[in-house]
Amino acid sequence: MKIGKTASILSLLLISFELKGASSGAGLEGMLYFFAFLILFILFRSPKIPSLKTREIAGIKALEEAIGRSTEMGKPILFISGTKPVPSVSAVAGMNVLGRIAKLAARYGTPIVSPHNNSITMIAATEEIKEGLRSANNEELFRDCSIFYLTDSQFPYAAGINALTSKVRPGAIFYMGTFYAESLILTEHGQNTGAIQIAGTDSVAQIPFFITTCDYLLMGEELFAASAYIQNDEASLRSIFMLDLAKAATIAYILIKIFVVNL
């Protein structure tokens, strides 16, 4: 109750200021939308709400199969982060998936090769892999892993990864994050090497290319849901439920607005 009151007062105070995006339509509506989301988030942390169950995500379930296959073949696995660096949300979600991959790789003793196009992403990936190996009590495996910086440029990055794929011949390739035109160059080449490929992206334009060339795909919001699904704690699972609620509310809002405008 206190949270609701505080949020209402805060919203009223904020509305009294001049809104930046009022002319472009991103002002009042956008701000209220954000705060509605924020309130929902806080409310859904309440312990009174019963625990939630989520459906399995095929792409996440297939991670183990892909790493297992790589182990059987005696080949390393390749993790490719997207073109956007770590402060971007898709890269953060991708790093959570990498954590899960590292844990599984540690269990099977399969080394990870991970080229990056940004040094901050490289450091985040290194820490994520180290943490994954540590939690599975296989820290020695880190010596066989190879996490390095390649280049910032889009197409040289694609060329470098393709050369690496041809050289290393990984058993499984994971693409997680935001990709642009390089996506098909990477995945088509990866497919030609016979590796099992799992991708996760929020790039709408690249989804058809990933569907065509990859074995599994975390499409759009599934990448963010997968990140919460992997963490498997109550707060993260509730955030998925909250996401669905927000979606339903937005659809209802659009329908009402269409009705009101056309009345």
């Binding site: 989301f37 979600a93 929020d202 709408v204 759009g220 963010f224 996401l243 927000a246």
Partner: peptide, 8 residues
């Protein structure tokens, strides 16, 4: 995707 980004 937008809702996922806001949520994350």
């Amino acid at each position: 995707i937008t809702l996922g980004i806001v949520s994350t």
